[in-house]
């Protein structure tokens, strides 16, 4: 199945394939993600969800196929970039939220959020001001100096959401962002994630097992054995 959208795509994958030894993780996936669109990727464990996300995000190189990002300077072939180019791409065009947040335990919440900007050579004062703004947007005022170990699960994920937004990325990738949270906190985190991405004109690709998360996304793709086997547009979101 080839997944398409009507609006101009910001991210396009064509026949993306990836294997790990004899195990086929992706068997030729094609899809398009539109600007300001939220897409949930679902499927059983081992269906290839995370591998797809990693290929789209330039974390790993696909064995075959093409991934293209419609960047501000024109189309950019993600799959042909070298390690340095992929690092730059992730730093400048993408944002990430993972199940465990993957915040750096040594840094404070403010520093964790400011880190992508510092990596891009932004002045410390500006980076921290921007980080403080995003923490405030996510209701984390007063938490700036706390370290990840001093935050609750929900706060931890909201810091990760703030970090994903701070560089004004085109696409935000989230891998089971609510996997370790209770239902109420999950709802808060997903709301924050949607408001800060699609609400601000950015695209969101979220890998999830959680039907409630999928229900609030514009589109749901279902993967099985490395292929998209089902796709549906959420009526409420489409309206």
């Amino acid at each position: 199945m080839h997944s398409t959208v009507a609006a101009p795509p910001v991210l396009t994958a064509v026949a993306v394939a990836k294997s790990y030894g004899p195990t086929v993780a992706l068997a030729g996936v094609s899809l398009q993600i539109a600007a300001a669109e939220s897409v949930a990727v679902m499927g059983a464990s081992g269906s290839g969800k995370t591998t797809l996300l990693h290929c789209l995000a330039g974390i790993i190189e696909p064995d075959a196929g093409a991934v293209t990002l419609a960047g501000p300077q024109g189309a950019l072939r993600v799959d042909t970039l070298g390690p340095e180019g992929r690092s730059r791409l992730r730093r400048q065009h993408y944002g990430f939220v993972f199940q465990q947040g993957l915040l750096l335990p040594e840094l404070t919440a403010l520093e964790n959020v400011a880190l992508p900007l510092l990596l891009d050579g932004v002045d410390r004062h500006r980076a921290e001001a921007e980080a403080a703004h995003w923490l405030a947007q996510l209701g984390l005022t007063g938490m700036e100096e706390r370290r990840p170990g001093q935050l609750s699960g929900g706060q931890h994920q909201r810091v990760a959401v703030a970090r994903a937004q701070v560089g004004s990325p085109s696409v935000v990738f989230a891998d089971e962002p609510t996997g370790a949270l209770d239902s109420r906190t999950s709802e808060q985190v997903v709301t924050a994630l949607l408001q800060t991405t699609t609400g601000a004109g950015r695209s969101l690709v979220v890998v999830t097992h959680d039907q409630r998360v999928a229900a609030v996304c514009d589109r749901v793709l279902e993967l099985s054995d490395g292929l998209i086997v089902n796709e549906h547009v959420n009526r409420r979101r489409a309206a």
């Binding site: 690092s87 791409l89 992730r90 730093r91 990430f96 993957l102 915040l103 750096l104 992508p116 990596l119």
Partner: peptide
């Protein structure tokens, strides 16, 4: 290991 993975994901080059 996890810290370096995290840095890699958000785009920090290996040299950095």
């Amino acid at each position: 290991r996890e810290l370096f993975t995290s840095l890699e994901r958000i785009g920090m080059p290996l040299d950095g």
